[in-house]
């Protein structure tokens, strides 16, 4: 464990807690893409299948349970909570996210480190996580401006990915044989997807005006 990875995990934790608290306190999920939340639930479900078979540390197991619990509760809140589900913007959140799942599954069947059930699903979760934010970014473009909590959520997610890249650079220089192209490339693609959002987000901060994303 290094400081970059710990900071990355804490930033990731903060992002899901910001979202969960927002939905729980103001009982609204306006501006939040359910599709992205469903994709993240699938990402965690397929990535943490080894939670019962392999144990790394209390921290690792605890964080896996927190990420699984928070992502699934956000989806359940948005789908079934009597008040929250009414604020879900069904008409705008129309990204065909199932079209993302199949190519990621096929890619995982083609490109993986080991051809085992757990490894292929783990690789699938890497590819899916790289594109999971797309429905949310599309929704932000459509709704033009965003409330600051959803902006903070995406911002923190991007921060977690950026810190993970620093973590990989650190591990590359400190651990022998630390070469994992699959993780690195999918992680890089994911981080680049946030790049343009970061640009507009920082602009809105600089000019201290409401974040307006270009159409």
């Amino acid at each position: 464990m290094n400081i970059f990875r710990l900071a990355g995990d804490m930033t990731h934790l903060a992002s899901v807690l910001v979202l969960l608290l927002k939905i729980h306190t103001i009982k609204s999920c306006a501006g939040v893409s359910l599709k992205t939340q469903e994709l993240y639930a699938i990402v965690f479900a397929t990535r943490y299948l080894d939670i019962f078979t392999s144990f790394y540390s209390i921290y690792n197991t605890l964080m896996k349970l927190v990420f699984l619990g928070s992502s699934f509760s956000i989806v359940l809140y948005m789908k079934y909570h009597k008040t929250v589900h009414r604020s879900y913007d069904r008409e705008q959140d129309t990204f065909r996210h199932w079209f993302l799942v199949l190519p990621c599954l096929l890619l995982a069947l083609l490109i993986h480190e080991k051809f085992t059930f757990l490894e292929v699903l783990w690789t699938f979760s890497l590819y899916l996580e790289a594109v999971a934010i797309l429905p949310q970014l599309v929704l932000l473009q459509r709704t033009r401006n965003i409330d600051n909590l959803t902006g903070q959520y995406v911002f923190l997610l991007g921060g977690y990915r950026g810190l993970y890249i620093l973590n990989w650079i650190y591990r590359y220089f400190t651990e022998p044989h630390f070469v994992h192209w699959i993780t690195w490339i999918s992680g890089l693609v994911q981080t680049l997807l946030y790049a343009d959002f970061f640009f507009y987000y920082s602009q809105s901060w600089k000019n201290n005006k409401k974040l307006q994303l270009p159409a």
Binding site: D50, S54, Y56, S57, F67, R171, P176, H177, F178, H180
Partner: peptide, 10 residues
């Protein structure tokens, strides 16, 4: 030498 694995990452 065993390859370091990524499964210890979240």
């Amino acid at each position: 030498p065993n390859k370091s694995n990524m499964k210890d990452e979240l």
